[in-house]
Amino acid sequence: MKRNEFIKISSITGLSLAIFPQLSFKNFSEEFTRNQLIGKGNPDIVGDSYTSKMHKTAKAAFNKMKSAAAKENINIEVVSAYRSFQRQKEIFEGKYKRFTSEGLSPEKAIKKIIEYSTIPGTSRHHWGTDLDIIDANAPRPANVLMPENFHGTGVFCKLKTWLNENASKFDFYEVYTDNGNRKGFKYEPWHFSYAPVSIPMLKEYKERINVKKMLSEEKIMGNEHFSEAFVSKYVKENILDINPKLL
């Protein structure tokens, strides 16, 4: 290739990445294993606890964001990061047992669970890219992950304002936005995702994971009540009806 042609192509590529930054996020030809996509193991996860385990590149970006926030006297604390398939299974099945023992039908129990909790094998937390965060410098309410804590006179308003203005600079985006037209999981102002990794992982998840088949293979409690119609609706609303910047 001639030098002038190389410079021209390089310039075009640089301009494309500036206009469409998601193109630089990851090599979309990279393949992830089934286990990586459903939370059953990922060699790129680093950390030693449920609040520190993250995908290694997400962790590097988070540390930069945390340092920037600290300059504004905001101490970003992770209350949940990577969550394994087994841990999500324990959460889901624990709630399923409790709700059905209280008299709810299996279908109603599942509907109640998925207001906030994902079905194991479908959680974005399985990827190590998604974080639930608060401000450790603010007074700690009894239940930290409540929308009212991030708005009005809520204790995490300063954090939320800062994230609205700065999170995208570090490639983090709110997942379940406060959009009245959005369906699926309820609004979560504390939940942010590292787009450079979560976008390609979601892309492969959509292409490779048959959710109904996976739930049956993994013997998730209550899976016999996951009809084709339910799973189709769940994928459309709970997995895909998210911030468009993360699609």
Rank of each mutant, 00 (worst) to 15 (best):
W127F: 09
E207N: 13
L202R: 14
K213D: 13
I113A: 05
G154L: 06
I220K: 02
K183M: 11
I114G: 06
I119R: 09
M201G: 07
N210W: 02
P196T: 11
R182H: 05
T118M: 10
T122E: 01
M201K: 15
I209E: 05
G222M: 09
E188Q: 13
K203M: 14
E174P: 02
N164C: 09
I119C: 07
R182V: 06
E207R: 13
S193Q: 08
L202Y: 02
E188R: 11
K160A: 13
M201Y: 04
A138S: 15
F150D: 07
L163S: 03
N143R: 11
I134E: 10
N166F: 01
V144M: 15
I220E: 05
A138G: 08
W162P: 03
E224P: 01
E115P: 01
F172I: 07
G152L: 11
P200D: 13
H126P: 10
D135Y: 04
A167W: 03
P189Y: 05
L145E: 08
Y205T: 04
H225P: 00
I119V: 15
K112Q: 15
V235D: 07
G128S: 10
F150Y: 13
E237C: 11
L131E: 08
G180Q: 10
F150A: 03
Y194R: 06
E237Y: 10
L163Y: 07
G222S: 06
S216G: 03
I114S: 02
S232P: 00
N137K: 12
L202W: 02
K212G: 14
S123H: 06
I220R: 01
L131A: 08
P106F: 01
I134K: 06
R208P: 02
H191F: 03
T161L: 10
T118V: 01
D132F: 01
T177H: 01
I114H: 04
E207M: 09
T118I: 00
